[in-house]
Amino acid sequence: MSSSNDSIKKTLTVALMLCIVCSVIVSGAAVIFKAQQQENKALDRKTNILAAAGLLVPGKTVDELYAQITPRVVNLNTGEYTDEFNPETYDQLKASKDPALSKALSNSEDVAGIKRREQFATVYLVEKDGELSRIILPVRGYGLWSTLHGFLALEADANTVIGLGFYQHAETPGLGGEVDNPKWKALWPGKEIYQEGTMEPQIELIKGSVDAGTPDAEHKIDGLSGATLTSRGVTNLVQYWIGEEGFGPYLSKFRKEGV
């Protein structure tokens, strides 16, 4: 009987020691690779920002290309820049979940389906030959199955689109997932988000294709075939973030006063 108890104790002891050793290894690996994970995350963010703005070119590293970009944190309520946060480390998605740094949206306000909106957001300014050439805005909103996260790039006039790209979503491949199709993304450059003389969002996806006979074609994008709800979601999220609740005050101020 004693031998049997000793055997059970030894088995439990060995199992316990294995658990301790494994937990130490896992914890150690998490600490060791944390810095690498953060570097990869930052590199991915920079890559997506550059891609949306059409700035990814062969022969140069992401960091070399990103050197022309200056991030600034903006107060979405006033449209003013703020030095309250470090733009390189500020996490606006995290801030959107913090009641002290965000606000809950009513049903009428929440056209993008994000539930809460952060009070501060990061914009990315691109300079060329000493002058501002592009403004890149983070955007997000709900489609059919998921929240789409991406970047909208504008010319220095704060009105003409350079590009739109999504780096995270779970829309249906071949339908809503066509937001990743280069042919569809190529429809965005040159489109205008506002009508001349106004700050009312006009850009939208329509059912079917845009052609020479489409009224206000400069504000229209081909809808995603077979993906009505995703198309509507893209329209809603873009209009939300360039509207009064999003970057509207900033873009209005920018068009009047510049950087």
Rank of each mutant, 00 (worst) to 15 (best):
M1Q: 06
S3I: 13
S3A: 12
S4D: 12
S4Q: 13
S4H: 13
D6Y: 14
S7L: 15
I8R: 10
I8H: 09
K9G: 09
K9T: 10
K9A: 14
K10A: 09
T11D: 13
L12V: 14
V14D: 03
V14T: 10
A15W: 12
L18D: 11
I20D: 08
V26K: 07
V26E: 10
A29D: 11
A29W: 13
A30R: 13
F33H: 14
F33S: 11
A35V: 14
A35W: 08
Q36D: 15
Q37H: 14
E39D: 14
K41L: 14
A42Y: 11
D44Q: 15
K46C: 10
T47P: 04
I49P: 01
A52Q: 00
A52W: 01
T61M: 01
T61G: 12
V62K: 01
D63Y: 01
D63V: 04
E64Q: 12
L65F: 02
Q68I: 08
P71A: 12
P71R: 03
L76A: 03
T78W: 03
G79R: 01
E80P: 00
E84K: 12
N86W: 04
P87F: 01
P87C: 03
D91F: 08
Q92A: 09
L101P: 00
L105M: 02
L105E: 04
L105A: 08
N107S: 14
E109T: 04
D110Q: 05
A112M: 03
G113Q: 02
K115F: 04
K115T: 13
R116C: 11
R117K: 13
E118G: 06
Q119F: 15
Q119E: 15
F120M: 07
F120Y: 15
E127D: 15
E127R: 14
E127A: 14
G130P: 04
G130T: 05
G130A: 07
L132R: 13
S133W: 06
R134C: 12
I135F: 04
L137I: 10
P138K: 06
V139C: 09
R140D: 12
G141V: 03
Y142H: 11
S146G: 00
L148N: 05
H149P: 02
G150T: 02
E155W: 06
A156Y: 05
A158F: 05
N159G: 06
T160E: 00
T160S: 04
I162K: 09
L164P: 00
Y167T: 06
A170D: 14
L175Y: 07
L175E: 02
V179N: 06
V179M: 10
D180C: 08
P182Q: 10
K183M: 08
A186N: 06
W188Q: 10
P189Q: 07
K191H: 07
I193M: 09
I193H: 01
Q195G: 13
M199T: 14
Q202K: 12
I203A: 09
I206Q: 00
I206S: 03
G208K: 09
D211I: 05
A212N: 11
A212W: 05
G213N: 14
T214M: 07
T214V: 02
P215Q: 06
A217T: 02
A217P: 09
K220V: 03
D222V: 00
S231T: 03
T235G: 06
T235D: 07
Q239E: 09
Y240R: 08
Y240D: 05
W241Y: 10
I242F: 02
G243H: 01
G246V: 02
G246C: 06
P249G: 03
Y250C: 07
R255H: 10
R255T: 06
V259P: 01
